[in-house]
Amino acid sequence: MEKTLNWREFIITRAIKASGYSAIVFVALIFFFLLREGLPALVEVPLSTLFSVRWYPIESYFGILPLITGSIIVTIGAALIAVPFGIGTAVFISEIAPRWLREIIKPLVELLGGLPSVVLGFLGILVLSPFLRRFLDLPTGLTAFTGSLLLGGIAVPTVVSIAEDALDAVPRSYREGAWALGATRWQTIWRVTLPAARSGVLTGIMLGIGRAIGETMAVMMVTGNAPVLALTPGSLFSPARTMTATIAAEMGEVANASVHYHVLFFIGMVLFIISLIVNIAASSVVFRSKKRAERVLS
């Protein structure tokens, strides 16, 4: 009797342990695979070509800088839109909206988060980009800015959903404490509720930006896909091409193990490293700025 119980215990703990470690193993395997397929690019293409500004694979120009800047500018644009809107919406839902309204908005926002990005891409091509072209008087509506708007829209529900949960979890007594001191609603939100929910709000932002960096379909449909080096803010309003879109568009038509193929994997590696850096940076911000007191609390 005792023996079987011990066995069951043993098997279950091992199974849980194994599934935990498997996450690490999978990340390691993926990274290994990327390295194996991507590193040959460093040998086959001279570094000066790889880090040049011309991407034209057919003629063996493999400069990935425009792709990197394209991804960065689109993502920054998206973050600038998604963060204020997302936090604003989350604050509205959790702190300001009356209960009945909140019960309508929250599910709607979450539904928005579940929309396939291709569908949003349609909207981008058919509605957003013609509108922007006319409204901003641009030669084309397919620009990095269009992509940013769309990506911002895609990231907002993620930010809202997680940030709202965090705000909602702040004990009511905190707010009452601040109100009783004569704080206005806004002062309470800004100085008490938001700081108390900080780690949750930052997680929301991080996941939202993560979603924006990795998004492919919608971006490929609306950014125009011109591999142009984007260095000035003005290039936000010209076409751009992101790393993800490049991989998605070209992977299907390259010869296996060709130079182009290796370079695409190399781009994947860069993308992987960038999102790793973003994640580490974000979580270190979350953990470092959390004082001992708040760790005890949360």
Binding site: Y174, A178, W179, A183
Partner: peptide, 28 residues
Amino acid sequence: RRKVGMVFARPVVLPMSIRQNLTYGLEL
């Protein structure tokens, strides 16, 4: 509420330092 202060059953210190807890209301 500045004129009529209130202390609650469960102490609610705000997530700040001791000094900031005290100066918070005044700063507001």
